[in-house]
Write a protein that binds this DNA or RNA. Structure first.
Lengths: 143, 143
DNA sequence: CCGCGCAGTTCGGAAAATGAACTGACCCGG
DNA sequence: CCGGGTCAGTTCATTTTCCGAACTGCGCGG
């Protein structure tokens, strides 16, 4: 007993965040929508679905439920650091949709906060100090 | 009639590739598993599900169905360029799982083909010529 | 005290996933 | 030429899951 995972990381990830509503939900929280009723309205999702998805995300530690008002108790949902790091996946999905399903027309631009330039998402080789695309990837089982 | 998309790219993307089996299926094809029976066995998925997912991916243009043997006709499934470009999303999911669900233990390493170095996935600013993480992203509606 | 807003839960019907069995074309051994 | 095996699916019946409409609970404002 030691290292945690014989099983596959993609499958485990999908068990936590791998469904349509969960992904959209996370994207919405990224945008700053945090409250139950706002989330429901902006996604058009059924309440029980939203409720269930939020619970799972909270249990998994991806979002946290924060009291923003006592009496009556009202909660909002915020991304934990674990949640914030879902963004590369969300960005990848968005860019793929922009390129292949929207004919290259992005509805939302993502920019580097520091300078306002539109950002790129890429693979980066620390040795070569270059970026590269999917075709230059190779894989190898871990030791 | 003009630009294609009032709707959201993430949602459209999820309609095409946003479910568990579809994602796992694409990952498997990336690994080089291409035939129906191999895919079924390596994922443990029920035949009708596999059959349905493959059909949708073919219809969407993400994979293509290629005859690899006549008599009896036998087909295999290959990624189109559109399919190859799903990899950033898959990589993002895998890395997130490695980091947050497997305690940092990756089962598979992804490396830069040219030099064998383990790759990083990052956001890249063409102006600043630097890589950066999720916290340095900002968003803006397209013009 | 009546209506409203918010954050959910309960409940019945519709849609999906599942495993087992079947089809159909072909190859091979006896 | 007959039986068994492979591969790529389809059909079918059953269970599981998802979803939407309606309801609850709590406090506020008038």
């Amino acid at each position: 007993m030691e290292d945690t995972a014989p099983v596959d990381s993609v499958a485990r990830t999908l068990d936590v965040i791998g469904d349509r509503w969960t992904m959209l939900l996370l994207r919405e929280i990224f945008r700053g929508v945090r409250r139950f009723e706002e989330l429901r309205a902006s996604l058009g999702v059924a309440r029980p679905v939203l409720s269930g998805r939020l619970r799972r995300l909270v249990d998994a530690g991806v979002v946290e439920r924060v009291l923003y008002q006592e009496r009556p108790p009202r909660y909002e949902y915020r991304l934990t650091p674990m949640g914030v790091e879902v963004s590369p996946a969300l960005v990848a999905l968005m860019r793929w949709g922009d390129r292949w399903l929207a004919g290259g027309n992005a509805a939302t631009l993502l920019v580097h906060r520091a300078c306002g330039t539109e950002l790129d998402q890429a693979f980066w080789c620390p040795t070569c100090a270059t970026t590269f695309g999917p075709l230059a990837i190779s894989s190898r089982p871990a030791t």
